[in-house]
């Protein structure tokens, strides 16, 4: 399988009040096309920092990050922005959206901005609506973002992340602000995208979410402490319970 993302000796250091804080230490990881990888760890372990470093949203202090064959550490801010726009998708815990745009406009905004997109605005809008229908929110396109529920909004964020057919989606606690049923809906959508071939890297502290992923990376004190292959999740409550049990046991062994 093709490698979508690879890091070698990735380090990230923050200096706060003249004190050095090594958040990430020599991280080596590889994510192949079609994988759904969960990054787990206790609070402050560096999960989100890892996600932002590998996605180019933050600069690494040392090491290499190779995304789709491009060494991102050497890219300019402009090129990184271009990369994020055209080849990556993002889903955040807080469901950030532009307040002055409708749900649909929020979704198609990256497509309108992207120079790679040569289709007409109308065609882009139609594509956006298609995505929304696929994710079950086809009827809220013209609503303001305050007029939809949390679950609908997060599905809209998923649509936005997909609009430019990215190589990889980065999700930072995508279900963190949702109730249980909305969380399940969102994860099912992500699984569906993954089955269609989208590579997903997901930061989560919820074993129920992580249990649906094909691989788990456990981070602690800035380093990857453990890695577990879970295989693809086919669906079904029993399989899910088994996977959760297996994961919990493994996490306890890691010191969770």
């Amino acid at each position: 399988m093709n490698t979508v993302l690879q890091t070698k000796g990735l380090c990230k250091t923050y200096i706060v009040n003249k004190r050095q804080n090594n958040v990430l230490k020599n991280i080596d990881l590889t994510i192949s096309e079609g994988e759904m990888v969960a990054i787990m760890g206790p609070s402050g372990s560096g999960k989100s920092t890892l996600l932002y470093c590998v996605s180019g949203m933050d600069r690494v202090t040392a090491g290499e990050v190779i995304f789709n064959g491009k060494e991102t550490a050497r890219l300019s801010d402009k090129s990184l922005s271009q990369l994020r726009l055209d080849e990556m998708g993002f889903i955040f815990q807080q469901m950030y959206m532009m307040k002055n745009l409708s749900v649909l406009d929020n979704i198609i905004l990256p497509a309108v901005k992207s120079k790679r997109n040569t289709e007409s605005r109308k065609a882009t809008e139609e594509r956006g609506r298609q995505l929304m229908r696929r994710l079950g929110i086809g009827d809220v396109g013209d609503n303001d973002i305050n007029e939809v529920s949390g679950g609908q909004l997060q599905r809209a964020c998923i649509c936005r992340s997909m609009i430019n057919s990215p190589k990889m989606i980065f999700a930072d606690e995508p279900t963190g602000a949702l109730n249980r049923s909305s969380s399940d809906e969102v994860m099912n959508e992500l699984l569906s995208l993954n089955r269609d071939g989208t590579t997903i890297m997901c930061v989560t502290h919820d074993p129920k979410v992580a249990a649906k992923c094909s691989r788990i990376l456990y981070i602690m004190d800035g380093g990857i402490m453990g890695e577990k292959e879970m295989g693809h999740f086919n669906g079904g409550d029993k399989e899910l319970r088994d996977r959760e049990r297996e994961l919990n046991n493994w996490l306890m062994e890691q010191g969770w």
Binding site: S81, L83, R84, L85, D86, M88, K113, S114, R160
Partner: peptide
Amino acid sequence: ALMKAVGFQ
């Protein structure tokens, strides 16, 4: 921050 995250320069 969101705009920059999704790729706005």
